[in-house]
Design a protein around this nucleic acid. Structure first.
Lengths: 193, 193
DNA sequence: GCTAAAGGAAACAGATCGGTTTACTTAACT
DNA sequence: AGTTAAGTAAACCGATCTGTTTCCTTTAGC
């Protein structure tokens, strides 16, 4: 296996284990065993477990972003419809056998120090999602795009956690329903100007 | 210290540490050290760490429920206003120095086995919150109380996680704003009958 | 074909994990 | 006053944790 592929493979395995079992509960021994890689190789690519955690979070950030945006764009064509399609993509995500909630929410539950780099990555991820929703709100012609985007992001967050705890994807539909109302109200207000 | 007081004291310390640092990261040594209790005493009251975790979750369940309902009832008098006051109580909660998100969300991030007793406790907690909101919706005269309650519970969840990650309590206001719209719409639909 | 980097397996280190046991002390009840 | 239950501090257990090191094999480039 090529060198860069090996590093990515370790990260991929680590993401899966961190998502399913958490960060403190996942030891490096298990990661190297499941990645079929020696401990020396693992520590050759990552200086510490914390660095591997950070690399996993950053990788998951970009992979999730790409997949999610792609999903939304395949599910709807106009910005207005895409704002709603966010929750269809969410439902698909929640229905996956390997859905264990949001990795960035889970990591924040294990590292509470606000100066921790893990929390930085989590905050950045959520801000990235928010910026994406803001851009759709602007293109859709919302009255107050920032406000609407914050509301939709909060709905998204609520749907994720509710699905994680209940074990059911129906929360996506609940959130979608509210989103439709908020979007319609925002567009109507704009039209009334 | 009386015997029952000692057990409760251990649980109280455990709850604080589990909330701040997570479950796997908090060792029994640290709990006994901060509770100023010997290891023998701790294992005399709890057969294992898992049993202590469960006891902590159950205790937090009832304490949180009592405090939260009391807060809501002090903040508003009518069921309709109390449904909105949920988010004022939430803002107060988020502003606390010792706010580390919802203990039941955090525990689910560390124990993914759906048959785990920790997840049972979490599901039960969220259902208890939902039933409370349903009862308020019924008393408020909502058109579809179950539906509205599910929506408000999802908003509540979203506000909690958003506050936890962002470190700001403003998400409570965002959720409150949406809640007002949903409640008004539900009551208006009912009146139109 | 030789050199050098990289990987694998496994031993090792020191700390910490959950949990048990021992020896001694405290406090309460008849 | 003497018994008993419950406490403490600390040693101890085996397992596991993150991280390092050793020794040997593979592989790739010149």
């Amino acid at each position: 296996m090529p060198i860069l592929g090996r590093r990515d493979h370790i990260i991929e395995v680590a993401i899966r284990l961190f998502c399913e079992h958490g960060f403190h509960a996942t030891g490096v021994d298990r990661i190297m065993r499941e990645a079929k890689v020696s401990k020396k190789t693992l520590y050759n690519h990552f200086r510490s477990k914390d660095e591997l955690i950070l690399a996993a979070l950053q990788q998951h950030d970009s992979v999730f972003r790409n997949n999610f945006v792609k999903d939304v764009e395949h599910l709807a064509n106009t910005p207005k419809d895409q704002l709603i399609a966010i929750f269809d993509a969410a439902e698909k995500w929640f229905s996956d056998q390997n859905f264990f909630g949001c990795m960035f929410v889970n990591v924040v539950g294990e590292y509470s120090d606000p100066t921790s780099p893990m929390r930085d990555v989590s905050r950045n991820f959520k801000q990235m999602i928010l910026r994406y929703i803001v851009s759709l709100c602007v293109k859709a012609g919302a009255k107050d795009p920032e406000k609407l985007a914050n509301e939709l992001a909060l709905l998204f967050e609520g749907a994720i956690v509710t699905a994680q705890i209940s074990g059911s994807p129906v929360s996506a539909g609940t959130a979608k329903n509210i989103a439709k109302q908020l979007l319609a109200a925002s567009l109507a207000e704009k039209a009334r100007e």
